[in-house]
Protein backbone atom coordinates (compact mmCIF):
# COMPACT_ATOMS: atom_id res chain seq x y z
CA UNK A 1 0.00 0.00 0.00
CA UNK A 2 1.20 3.48 -0.78
CA UNK A 3 2.15 5.52 2.18
CA UNK A 4 3.19 9.15 2.07
CA UNK A 5 6.43 9.46 4.04
CA UNK A 6 6.64 13.23 3.90
CA UNK A 7 3.51 14.31 5.74
CA UNK A 8 4.34 13.39 9.32
CA UNK A 9 5.39 16.90 10.26
CA UNK A 10 5.26 20.37 8.85
CA UNK A 11 9.02 20.88 8.66
CA UNK A 12 9.95 18.24 6.08
CA UNK A 13 9.86 18.86 2.37
CA UNK A 14 8.79 16.10 0.01
CA UNK A 15 11.24 15.41 -2.85
CA UNK A 16 8.92 17.45 -5.05
CA UNK A 17 9.41 20.44 -2.74
CA UNK A 18 6.02 20.30 -1.08
CA UNK A 19 5.10 20.49 2.58
CA UNK A 20 2.10 18.22 2.85
CA UNK A 21 0.94 19.30 6.30
CA UNK A 22 0.53 22.82 4.98
CA UNK A 23 -1.43 21.56 2.01
CA UNK A 24 -3.67 19.52 4.30
CA UNK A 25 -4.25 22.62 6.39
CA UNK A 26 -5.34 24.37 3.22
CA UNK A 27 -7.85 21.57 2.72
CA UNK A 28 -9.31 22.43 6.12
CA UNK A 29 -9.95 25.92 4.78
CA UNK A 30 -11.88 24.46 1.86
CA UNK A 31 -14.09 22.53 4.29
CA UNK A 32 -15.18 25.72 6.05
CA UNK A 33 -18.30 27.53 4.94
CA UNK A 34 -17.77 30.29 2.44
CA UNK A 35 -16.75 33.84 3.25
CA UNK A 36 -16.56 36.72 0.78
CA UNK A 37 -14.73 40.05 0.94
CA UNK A 38 -14.96 42.99 -1.43
CA UNK A 39 -13.29 46.39 -1.33
CA UNK A 40 -14.12 49.70 -2.97
CA UNK A 41 -12.36 53.07 -2.74
CA UNK A 42 -14.39 53.93 0.36
CA UNK A 43 -15.49 50.68 1.96
CA UNK A 44 -14.61 47.11 2.62
CA UNK A 45 -17.25 44.43 3.19
CA UNK A 46 -17.05 40.92 4.62
CA UNK A 47 -19.89 38.44 4.34
CA UNK A 48 -20.19 34.85 5.43
CA UNK A 49 -22.48 31.88 5.46
CA UNK A 50 -22.79 30.45 8.92
CA UNK A 51 -23.41 26.78 9.50
CA UNK A 52 -25.00 25.11 12.48
CA UNK A 53 -23.59 21.75 13.43
CA UNK A 54 -27.06 20.38 14.09
CA UNK A 55 -30.60 21.65 14.29
CA UNK A 56 -30.36 22.17 18.04
CA UNK A 57 -27.08 24.09 18.03
CA UNK A 58 -26.36 27.75 17.50
CA UNK A 59 -24.71 29.05 14.35
CA UNK A 60 -20.95 29.58 14.01
CA UNK A 61 -19.32 32.94 14.51
CA UNK A 62 -17.78 33.69 11.12
CA UNK A 63 -16.91 37.38 11.38
CA UNK A 64 -14.95 38.82 14.29
CA UNK A 65 -14.49 42.53 14.96
CA UNK A 66 -10.91 43.04 16.05
CA UNK A 67 -10.98 46.80 16.51
CA UNK A 68 -12.87 49.89 15.29
CA UNK A 69 -10.93 49.77 12.04
CA UNK A 70 -10.33 46.06 11.69
CA UNK A 71 -12.26 42.81 11.31
CA UNK A 72 -11.71 39.25 10.09
CA UNK A 73 -13.86 36.60 8.46
CA UNK A 74 -12.79 32.99 8.80
CA UNK A 75 -13.08 29.71 6.97
CA UNK A 76 -11.75 26.56 8.60
CA UNK A 77 -10.98 25.73 12.21
CA UNK A 78 -12.79 28.34 14.29
CA UNK A 79 -10.63 27.71 17.32
CA UNK A 80 -7.45 28.43 15.36
CA UNK A 81 -9.08 31.62 14.13
CA UNK A 82 -9.86 32.61 17.67
CA UNK A 83 -6.19 32.32 18.62
CA UNK A 84 -5.27 34.52 15.68
CA UNK A 85 -7.97 37.10 16.25
CA UNK A 86 -7.11 37.31 19.95
CA UNK A 87 -3.51 37.93 18.94
CA UNK A 88 -4.64 40.60 16.50
CA UNK A 89 -6.80 42.24 19.18
CA UNK A 90 -3.80 42.38 21.51
CA UNK A 91 -1.51 43.83 18.86
CA UNK A 92 -4.13 46.37 17.92
CA UNK A 93 -4.61 47.50 21.52
CA UNK A 94 -0.86 47.59 22.00
CA UNK A 95 -0.38 49.85 18.97
CA UNK A 96 -3.07 52.19 20.29
CA UNK A 97 -1.37 52.21 23.68
CA UNK A 98 2.22 52.78 22.62
CA UNK A 99 1.75 55.18 19.73
CA UNK A 100 -1.86 56.29 20.06
CA UNK A 101 -2.52 55.16 16.53
CA UNK A 102 -4.61 52.38 14.98
CA UNK A 103 -2.31 49.72 13.61
CA UNK A 104 -1.89 49.82 9.80
CA UNK A 105 -3.72 46.87 8.22
CA UNK A 106 -0.77 45.57 6.23
CA UNK A 107 1.38 45.36 9.35
CA UNK A 108 -1.03 43.33 11.44
CA UNK A 109 -1.55 41.02 8.47
CA UNK A 110 2.21 40.55 8.20
CA UNK A 111 2.30 39.75 11.91
CA UNK A 112 -0.16 36.86 11.62
CA UNK A 113 1.59 35.80 8.41
CA UNK A 114 4.88 35.56 10.33
CA UNK A 115 3.22 33.56 13.10
CA UNK A 116 1.74 31.11 10.62
CA UNK A 117 5.07 30.77 8.82
CA UNK A 118 6.93 29.97 12.05
CA UNK A 119 4.59 26.99 12.52
CA UNK A 120 5.94 25.56 9.30
CA UNK A 121 9.55 25.75 10.43
CA UNK A 122 9.50 24.40 13.98
CA UNK A 123 9.32 20.70 14.64
CA UNK A 124 6.24 19.62 16.56
CA UNK A 125 4.14 22.59 15.50
CA UNK A 126 0.99 22.40 13.41
CA UNK A 127 -0.01 24.94 10.78
CA UNK A 128 -3.14 26.97 11.48
CA UNK A 129 -6.10 25.19 9.89
CA UNK A 130 -7.85 28.36 8.98
CA UNK A 131 -7.98 30.93 6.21
CA UNK A 132 -8.84 34.52 6.99
CA UNK A 133 -10.08 37.51 5.10
CA UNK A 134 -8.80 40.56 6.93
CA UNK A 135 -10.66 43.79 6.29
CA UNK A 136 -9.46 47.11 7.59
CA UNK A 137 -9.19 50.83 7.05
CA UNK A 138 -6.09 52.95 7.66
CA UNK A 139 -4.47 56.17 6.42
CA UNK A 140 -4.17 54.69 2.94
CA UNK A 141 -7.86 53.74 2.75
CA UNK A 142 -9.77 50.45 2.89
CA UNK A 143 -7.92 47.16 2.48
CA UNK A 144 -8.77 43.52 2.05
CA UNK A 145 -6.17 40.84 2.71
CA UNK A 146 -6.25 37.10 2.33
CA UNK A 147 -4.37 34.99 4.85
CA UNK A 148 -3.74 31.30 4.36
CA UNK A 149 -2.23 28.56 6.59
CA UNK A 150 1.09 28.65 4.73
CA UNK A 151 1.64 32.14 6.07
CA UNK A 152 1.04 33.62 2.64
CA UNK A 153 -0.76 36.94 2.78
CA UNK A 154 -1.82 39.03 -0.16
CA UNK A 155 -3.87 42.14 -0.71
CA UNK A 156 -7.02 41.49 -2.76
CA UNK A 157 -9.61 43.58 -4.57
CA UNK A 158 -12.18 40.90 -3.87
CA UNK A 159 -11.85 37.40 -2.51
CA UNK A 160 -13.78 34.33 -1.48
CA UNK A 161 -12.53 31.33 0.48
CA UNK A 162 -14.18 28.21 1.88
CA UNK A 163 -16.46 25.51 0.51
CA UNK A 164 -17.77 26.10 -3.02
CA UNK A 165 -16.04 29.48 -3.04
CA UNK A 166 -15.12 29.07 -6.72
CA UNK A 167 -18.67 30.10 -7.65
CA UNK A 168 -18.38 33.27 -5.61
CA UNK A 169 -14.97 34.00 -7.14
CA UNK A 170 -16.42 33.64 -10.59
CA UNK A 171 -19.07 36.21 -9.70
CA UNK A 172 -16.39 38.54 -8.28
CA UNK A 173 -14.18 38.18 -11.37
CA UNK A 174 -17.11 38.95 -13.60
CA UNK A 175 -17.95 42.18 -11.71
CA UNK A 176 -14.43 43.21 -10.76
CA UNK A 177 -14.53 46.47 -12.73
CA UNK A 178 -17.58 47.71 -10.81
CA UNK A 179 -16.23 47.41 -7.28
CA UNK A 180 -13.81 50.33 -7.07
CA UNK A 181 -16.45 53.03 -7.53
CA UNK A 182 -19.28 51.20 -5.80
CA UNK A 183 -21.28 52.97 -3.13
CA UNK A 184 -21.72 51.41 0.29
CA UNK A 185 -25.04 49.84 -0.69
CA UNK A 186 -23.76 48.59 -4.05
CA UNK A 187 -20.77 46.99 -2.42
CA UNK A 188 -22.96 45.19 0.11
CA UNK A 189 -25.12 43.99 -2.77
CA UNK A 190 -22.14 42.60 -4.68
CA UNK A 191 -20.86 40.85 -1.56
CA UNK A 192 -24.21 39.23 -0.82
CA UNK A 193 -24.79 38.21 -4.44
CA UNK A 194 -21.33 36.65 -4.62
CA UNK A 195 -22.06 34.80 -1.41
CA UNK A 196 -25.39 33.60 -2.77
CA UNK A 197 -23.69 32.21 -5.88
CA UNK A 198 -21.75 29.71 -3.84
CA UNK A 199 -24.74 28.30 -1.97
CA UNK A 200 -25.91 24.78 -2.65
CA UNK A 201 -29.02 24.37 -4.77
CA UNK A 202 -31.47 23.96 -1.93
CA UNK A 203 -30.01 26.71 0.28
CA UNK A 204 -30.98 30.36 0.68
CA UNK A 205 -29.45 33.29 2.52
CA UNK A 206 -31.50 33.81 5.69
CA UNK A 207 -31.27 35.96 8.79
CA UNK A 208 -30.00 32.88 10.61
CA UNK A 209 -27.18 31.89 8.31
CA UNK A 210 -25.83 35.19 7.00
CA UNK A 211 -23.37 37.62 8.57
CA UNK A 212 -22.09 40.84 7.07
CA UNK A 213 -19.64 43.44 8.30
CA UNK A 214 -18.55 46.74 6.84
CA UNK A 215 -15.83 49.29 7.58
CA UNK A 216 -15.39 52.50 5.63
CA UNK A 217 -13.88 55.92 5.20
CA UNK A 218 -16.47 58.61 5.72
CA UNK A 219 -16.13 62.34 5.78
CA UNK A 220 -16.61 64.90 8.51
CA UNK A 221 -15.87 68.61 8.08
CA UNK A 222 -13.96 67.88 4.89
CA UNK A 223 -11.65 65.45 6.66
CA UNK A 224 -11.46 61.70 6.41
CA UNK A 225 -13.32 60.03 9.23
CA UNK A 226 -13.43 56.35 10.02
CA UNK A 227 -16.76 54.56 9.76
CA UNK A 228 -16.32 52.01 12.54
CA UNK A 229 -16.52 48.26 12.04
CA UNK A 230 -20.22 47.37 11.98
CA UNK A 231 -21.48 43.81 12.13
CA UNK A 232 -24.90 42.87 10.80
CA UNK A 233 -26.01 39.62 12.32
CA UNK A 234 -29.34 37.98 13.16
CA UNK A 235 -32.31 40.30 12.71
CA UNK A 236 -30.02 43.25 11.87
CA UNK A 237 -29.24 41.70 8.52
CA UNK A 238 -32.89 41.28 7.49
CA UNK A 239 -33.17 44.70 5.78
CA UNK A 240 -29.94 44.06 3.85
CA UNK A 241 -31.14 40.67 2.63
CA UNK A 242 -34.50 42.14 1.75
CA UNK A 243 -32.97 44.98 -0.26
CA UNK A 244 -30.38 42.89 -2.08
CA UNK A 245 -31.29 39.26 -2.43
CA UNK A 246 -34.95 38.97 -1.51
CA UNK A 247 -35.93 39.98 -5.03
CA UNK A 248 -35.12 36.50 -6.23
CA UNK A 249 -36.54 35.04 -3.07
CA UNK A 250 -39.78 36.93 -3.54
CA UNK A 251 -40.27 35.29 -6.92
CA UNK A 252 -39.83 31.90 -5.31
CA UNK A 253 -42.25 32.85 -2.58
CA UNK A 254 -44.83 33.77 -5.18
CA UNK A 255 -44.29 30.47 -6.89
CA UNK A 256 -44.73 28.64 -3.64
CA UNK A 257 -47.82 30.64 -2.77
CA UNK A 258 -49.37 29.65 -6.09
CA UNK A 259 -48.51 26.05 -5.47
CA UNK A 260 -50.22 26.06 -2.12
CA UNK A 261 -53.24 27.69 -3.71
CA UNK A 262 -53.58 24.82 -6.06
Amino acid sequence: MFRNNYDNDSVTFSPQGRIFQVEYAQEAVKQGSVVVGVVSKKHVVLTAVKRNAEELSSYQKKIVGVDDHLGVALAGLASDARVLSNFMKQQSLSSKMTYGRPIPVERIVNMIGDRAQSNTQHYGKRPYGVGLLVAGVDDLGPHLFEFSPSGLTQEMLACAIGARSQMARTYLERHLEEFADSSRDELIKHALLALKESLAQDKELTVDNTSLAIIGVGEKNGRKKLENFKLYDGQDIAPLLEANVESTLADDADGEAMETDL
Binding site: G100, R107, L140
Partner: peptide, 20 residues
Protein backbone atom coordinates in the same frame (compact mmCIF):
# COMPACT_ATOMS: atom_id res chain seq x y z
CA UNK B 1 11.27 49.25 6.80
CA UNK B 2 7.72 48.17 7.60
CA UNK B 3 6.20 50.52 5.06
CA UNK B 4 8.09 52.87 2.82
CA UNK B 5 4.93 54.75 1.88
CA UNK B 6 2.28 56.26 4.11
CA UNK B 7 1.73 55.49 7.81
CA UNK B 8 4.05 58.15 9.22
CA UNK B 9 4.38 58.70 12.96
CA UNK B 10 3.28 62.24 13.73
CA UNK B 11 4.22 64.37 16.74
CA UNK B 12 1.26 63.07 18.73
CA UNK B 13 2.25 59.44 18.11
CA UNK B 14 5.86 60.17 19.11
CA UNK B 15 4.79 61.99 22.24
CA UNK B 16 2.67 59.03 23.29
CA UNK B 17 5.58 56.68 22.60
CA UNK B 18 8.17 58.79 24.44
CA UNK B 19 5.92 59.26 27.46
CA UNK B 20 5.52 55.47 27.68
Amino acid sequence: YLSSYGHVLNAKNLHTYLSK
